[in-house]
Design a protein around this nucleic acid. Structure first.
Lengths: 104, 104
DNA sequence: CTATCTAGCTAGGAAAGCAACCTACTCACT
DNA sequence: AGTGAGTAGGTTGCTTTCCTAGCTAGATAG
């Protein structure tokens, strides 16, 4: 699922790992740790959802830039819909149950 | 997360493992396997979210009935809200990104 | 008497996340 | 000159979760 969120961030424009982490945090998804993010990004690259280019930093260390591919965009679209369907299902199932037997 | 869905099903009324599995399937969450469900139910019981009573079957094998506790209901309420918030965040993040750069 | 359905459970392995740690570069302050 | 903070990338090892596969056992149908 996090894969999807990261892919969504990359889809908004070419970016790099450290900033993706900051963006996710800002979006309210909490701090995604390095041990989570970098293996995840490597998976996205392996499966062809993104491509990377290394660029030396004018100031600070070099950055690995990630750009989404057409395959990545297709995956974002499809998995996004499946995620949406799943989220809808659960968010109806759960409050229903809370209401059903809630004796307050 | 599945914990939450199972807890939601139990909250609708006392039930047993095999039927929970069928209910989840019917709800559209796919078939939850025994190797997933029974350890999960054991966790729910260990953490006090549910209590169990064993009843011999009039027809067929005995069944272990699961009933939700007040603690379980509180957890369903709290975790349900957190899940809802999370689902809302992601479902806005993802279609936004799909729309942003979609060049069809 | 075997097959199938109901019902519960275990064992083993794969995947994902997390905490902790490491490298390396830049800049500011001391 | 040295220390610390911030930026940026990465690895290692642990734990949890889920799945596949299998087991036990009662009831029922062929």
């Amino acid at each position: 699922m996090l894969d999807l969120a990261v892919l969504a961030v990359i889809a908004r424009g070419e970016t790099y790992g450290y900033r993706i982490s900051a963006d996710l945090q800002e979006a309210g998804l909490g701090s995604v740790k390095g041990g989570t993010l970098y293996p995840l990004l490597a998976r996205l690259e392996e499966t062809g959802a993104v491509v990377t280019t290394w660029r030396e930093g004018e100031s600070g260390p070099g950055r690995k830039w990630y750009a989404i591919t057409p395959e990545g965009r297709a995956r974002l679209h499809d998995d996004g819909e499946r995620w949406h369907a799943f989220a809808s299902l659960t968010t109806t199932l759960i409050p229903d149950a809370v209401a059903t037997g809630d004796p307050r």
